[in-house]
């Protein structure tokens, strides 16, 4: 079985890097990072990820906006999305991810265990 692809989008390179290292360390995922909204759109089309992690608040383009644009493309309809956010508290998301109006939110700071659990759930593993 080929590795599932995950695209990480956050304006903070150190954060995407940490996410990537933790995900790659499991040996189960192929991971790519982007730190700008425009690059993220392009990367999504080239890289064809199964799952995209999006920061909700980024300087050039918000994560919700990126997701909105990608969802317009029928070829990309299979992609799953998860939003990383600083302003949703753990109490609202519980441990790990939470659905808020149909979207998956993960509160920062996320722990490795919570991250992996959320990814597995989203990818149906």
């Amino acid at each position: 079985m080929s590795k599932k692809k995950i695209l990480l989008v956050d304006d903070e390179p150190a954060l995407t890097r940490m996410l990537r290292l933790n995900l790659e360390q499991t040996g189960r995922y192929e991971v790519r990072e982007e730190n700008r909204g425009a690059d993220a759109l392009r990367a999504a089309r080239e890289f064809r990820p199964d799952l995209i992690f999006l920061d909700v608040m980024m300087p050039d383009m918000g994560g919700d906006e990126i997701a909105e644009q990608l969802k317009q493309d029928p070829e990309l309809s299979k992609i799953k999305y998860a939003f990383l956010t600083a302003i949703v508290t753990k109490r609202e998301t519980g441990a790990g991810a939470a659905q808020i109006s149909g979207e998956i939110f993960i509160a920062k700071p996320v722990k490795r265990d919570e991250l992996l659990a959320a990814v597995q759930e989203l990818l149906g593993e």
């Binding site: 956050d10 954060l15 996410l19 933790n22 990383l84 600083a86 920062k108 700071p109």
Partner: peptide
């Protein structure tokens, strides 16, 4: 929270 997340991960 971003720095916290970086340090945590």
């Amino acid at each position: 929270k971003n720095p916290l997340a970086i340090v945590q991960l």
